[in-house]
C-alpha cells in the first residue's frame, strides 16, 4: 500500500511543481473558456435572451464554462505523461519502487488539483455574469469539481498511456475534447434538441458534470422567478438530480481510471 500512496503523492507533487513553473500554461488554460464566455455571451445574449425564465444565456452558459475549464485542464494532464515519455523522465518514474496504479492516480490527482483551482478562479467572474455566490454553494462545488476533474484526467491519461508523441496526443485530444464540449449542454439545454443530438449528448459523461454544476448555480436563480425547477437532464423520462449526475460522472471516472491503470501497467 505504501507504494501506492507514495506514488500518488510524489507524482502529484511534481505535477504541481511543474505547473507553477509553467506560467504560460496557467494563462492558456483560461483563454479558450473565457473566449467562449465573452464572445458567445456577447453575441447571443440579446438574441436568445432568457433560456428559461429568470436565467439569461450568459448565466446559463457560465457553469458550463467552469466545467469546460476543468475539462481542458484535466484532459491535458495526459500531455505530461506523453511529455515524460518523450523526454525520458517516465523511465525514472517507472523504475522507482512505485505502483503503476499510484503513478496514474498521482498524475490524475495533480491534474485535478490544478483543474479545480482553475475552475475556482473563474468564480471571480460571477458578479459580472450576474450569478450570486454563497459560501454553501462554493463548498458544494469543491467535491463536484474534484470528481469531474479526476474522471476527466483519467480519460486524458488513458489516451496518453500509449501515445509516443505530443503532436499525436494533441491531435487525438482535439478530436475528443471538441465533441465532448459541444455535446455537453454547455451552450444549449439538451432536453429540447433533435433526437440524434439528444442521444449523443446524453451518452456524453460531461453532460452530467455540466448539469450538476448548473443545477447548483442556477437552481436559486430559476426558482426565484418561476418557483419551478427547470434544469436537470432527463434520461428516459427521469430528471437527474445533482447526486445522480455526480454518480454518473464518478462511475465514468472509475471506469476510465481502471482502464488507464491497466493500459499503463501493461506497457513495458
Amino acid at each position: 500500500m505504501t507504494a501506492v500512496f507514495r506514488g500518488v503523492w510524489v507524482i502529484a507533487y511534481r505535477e504541481l511543481l511543474r505547473f507553477v513553473q509553467e506560467r504560460s500554461r496557467i494563462v492558456s488554460s483560461f483563454a479558450m473558456p473565457l473566449l467562449f464566455l465573452v464572445i458567445f455571451g456577447a453575441g447571443f445574449n440579446r438574441i436568445i435572451g432568457a433560456v428559461t425564465p429568470g436565467v439569461d444565456f450568459i448565466q446559463f452558459m457560465y457553469p458550463g464554462i467552469i466545467a469546460m475549464t476543468v475539462l481542458m485542464n484535466s484532459v491535458m494532464s495526459g500531455l505530461s505523461v506523453v511529455w515524460d515519455r518523450e523526454f525520458g523522465f517516465l523511465k525514472e518514474v517507472l523504475v522507482a519502487p512505485l505502483s503503476r496504479g499510484g503513478i496514474v492516480l498521482g498524475k490524475a490527482a495533480g491534474a485535478a488539483t490544478v483543474a479545480v483551482a482553475q475552475g475556482f478562479i473563474l468564480l471571480i467572474l460571477s458578479p459580472i455574469v450576474g450569478v450570486s455566490l454563497n459560501p454553501l454553494l462554493v463548498i458544494k462545488l469543491v467535491p463536484m469539481l474534484i470528481i469531474l476533474s479526476l474522471s476527466l484526467s483519467g480519460l486524458g491519461i488513458l489516451v496518453a498511456s500509449r501515445m509516443r508523441s505530443q503532436q499525436g496526443f494533441q491531435l487525438i485530444v482535439q478530436l475528443i475534447i471538441f465533441p465532448l464540449i459541444f455535446l455537453s449542454g454547455i451552450f444549449f439545454p439538451v432536453n429540447n434538441v433533435p433526437v440524434w443530438l439528444e442521444v449523443l449528448s446524453k451518452v456524453n459523461p460531461l453532460t452530467y458534470g455540466v448539469d450538476a454544476i448548473r443545477q447548483l448555480f442556477l437552481a436559486g436563480e430559476a426558482a426565484a422567478t418561476t418557483g419551478d425547477f427547470v434544469f436537470g437532464v432527463t434520461v428516459f423520462g427521469h430528471t437527474m438530480s445533482i447526486a445522480e449526475d455526480i454518480l454518473i460522472v464518478a462511475v465514468f471516472g472509475v471506469i476510465v481510471m481502471l482502464l488507464a491503470i491497466w493500459s499503463f501497467s501493461r506497457q513495458e
Partner: peptide
C-alpha cells in the same frame, strides 16, 4: 540510462528530491 531521464524544467535539487521521495 543511455538517454537522459531528468526533468529538465526542474532544478537539480528538485530532481533529487523527487527521487528521494519516490524511494522513501
Amino acid at each position: 540510462f543511455q538517454d537522459p531521464t531528468l526533468d529538465e524544467y526542474l532544478t537539480a535539487e528538485q530532481n533529487l528530491n523527487f527521487h528521494a521521495y519516490a524511494y522513501g
